[in-house]
Design a protein around this nucleic acid. Structure first.
Lengths: 144, 144
DNA sequence: TATTGTTATACTCTATAACTATA
DNA sequence: TATAGTTATAGAGTATAACAATA
């Protein structure tokens, strides 16, 4: 089977991304954490009292989709909301959220290490800078 | 807003992939072509008379999801089915499919060129090899 | 007027299970 | 028994539109 897509960086990028997503998703499944929930917990931990619109902008999740996500985390007592003004609330991790995020971080570190290990040594140091450049370029073009 | 995810290759990979998907998807929209449809058309063109299960395996689309996709392409007279045996049919592009794919290829080439142009020159040659290594590694682990 | 949070809704992609008919 | 194609269904992520309450 000839694959004319195999030499297209954009296509291979999407294929790798899907595999990476499935892998990490499976690793997080025992914690009952979706990828989107994990990334939001990481952002809340790093930016206590930021509101959910700001967190959503940082992880590229729309306000409309943040509402049910945050509601799930709150219902599980992983996070809490602290009123800031009449229309916005700051988000903070609760003890259970800190604990769960600690476990998640262990899984993520193992995952990221395994990921980089699969890149041939000559190319390894170039991966993150190349991807970061593409990310920043896309932010300017699409979302910024 | 501090982003602790920005240094994780796996996370940045998924963010870039999402941006890349949105970009290419928008470019293909005028042709009324989804990304999955475009990749299937490319594979059919390169492998005439392959059946839809084989095509699906090559592009990582499950048989169950190939059925409606192929039905859409056939309904638009972009492809046709040639009976091979009683249970399988070979797929071929029709004239309209060739024409549409020709237009798509132009858009894809422009897209891939623009993509690589955004990668700093020192990293550029390393991107596809690094991604390809990750792709092959994931095929062995996940799907193979 | 603009922003926060919310609800409703829809689309794309992906996944499993179960069925038929053929090999 | 295994495979090709199909249908039904569900989950995850993402998108827009619209609204109430507040800044």
């Amino acid at each position: 089977m000839h694959d004319p897509l195999a030499h297209l960086p954009g296509y291979v990028l999407r294929r790798v991304s899907a595999a990476v997503r499935d892998d990490l998703s499976a690793r997080l499944a025992p914690l009952d954490l979706r990828l989107s929930e994990m990334s939001v917990l990481m952002l809340i931990a790093a930016n206590p009292d930021a509101n959910q619109s700001d967190i959503g902008r940082a992880v590229a999740i729309k306000r409309a989709n943040m509402a049910p996500l945050i509601a799930r985390l709150e219902a599980r007592r992983l996070i809490t909301r602290v009123p800031i003004d009449g229309r916005s609330q700051g988000l903070r991790l609760l003890a259970a959220g800190e604990a769960l995020l600690g476990e998640a971080r262990g899984l993520i570190d193992a995952f990221e290490t395994a990921l980089l290990a699969r890149v041939p040594a000559v190319h390894r140091a170039h991966l993150l800078p190349a991807l970061t450049a593409l990310w920043q370029a896309s932010e300017g073009a699409v979302q910024g």
